[in-house]
């Protein structure tokens, strides 16, 4: 049997992440500051959508992060499940609400963007629908975590769900695309979507990286907090035993 206690002390993790955290905060502030300045003031308005195109700078990186964070969560879950590594377990748990937040942001900005484009806040666009289903999977994952009292068992159950989800997400995405092409009325079809103008790239790229470092920053905060909560719980249990 693997000796759990060998890995149970995540001191090294806290030490390293505490050292890099100020750098992550700084880089995030720089990237997001530059990105939003570019997005709001420098980048050109779209010839079709006008100023409404600026919602894209919030929406596209959020949609990207919704999937990126799920991927990170699935990898952390696999590590936690196979090697019983408590830091990976904490990383997966701490990622879920951040990923759900990005997913919600992608949905809301998608709706705001859709209103001027489609004349309705919600149309059953393939991408929006896929993101909505991803949001439900995040909620189910968080639901498993909050419903099982023992954090070790909750972590393993949630990890199984995260892995089942990672196998199913491509299938769901494909099936929704298929469904959408069957049902999409012609009036909503648009050719290709907005082609990305070269003037938009600095804003988009810096925001995609800025969102990523923002995720890392919040992840470190949340993991530190979760590790403290677990330490307190362990001490309470130890105290109750004596």
């Amino acid at each position: 049997m693997v000796n759990l206690h060998r890995f149970a002390n995540p001191t090294w993790f806290v030490k390293i992440t505490t050292a890099i955290l100020p750098w992550v905060v700084g880089i995030t502030a720089l990237l997001m500051g530059y990105g939003f300045w570019q997005a709001l003031f420098v980048s050109p308005p779209d010839y079709q959508m006008g100023e409404a195109v600026r919602i894209m700078y919030v929406h596209v990186p959020a949609a990207y992060m919704a999937m990126m964070v799920y991927g990170a969560m699935a990898v952390a879950s696999a590590v936690a499940l196979i090697w019983r590594h408590p830091v990976a377990d904490v990383a997966a748990k701490a990622s879920a609400p951040i990923g759900a937040g990005f997913t919600l942001l992608a949905l809301v900005t998608g709706m705001l963007w859709g209103q001027p484009m489609w004349g309705a806040f919600w149309v059953w666009d393939a991408r929006l629908t896929s993101v909505l289903i991803l949001f439900f999977i995040y909620l189910a994952y968080i639901g498993i975590w909050t419903s099982i009292d023992d954090p070790l068992r909750a972590g393993r159950a949630a990890a199984i769900l995260a892995l089942v989800g990672s196998v199913n997400l491509p299938i769901i995405h494909y099936s929704v695309d298929w469904w959408n092409t069957l049902h999409q009325p012609a009036s909503l079809l648009r050719a290709g979507g907005p082609s990305v103008d070269a003037g938009m790239l600095p804003a988009l790229l810096s925001l995609v990286f800025g969102y990523t470092t923002f995720y890392v920053m919040v992840l470190i905060w949340r993991m530190h907090r979760e590790l403290v909560v677990r330490r307190i719980r362990a001490l309470q249990l130890l105290h109750a035993q004596e």
């Binding site: 023992d150 954090p151 070790l152 068992r153 677990r230 719980r233 249990l237």
Partner: peptide
Amino acid sequence: CTRGGRTV
């Protein structure tokens, strides 16, 4: 034996 983080 540990259960829920507690050593039994």
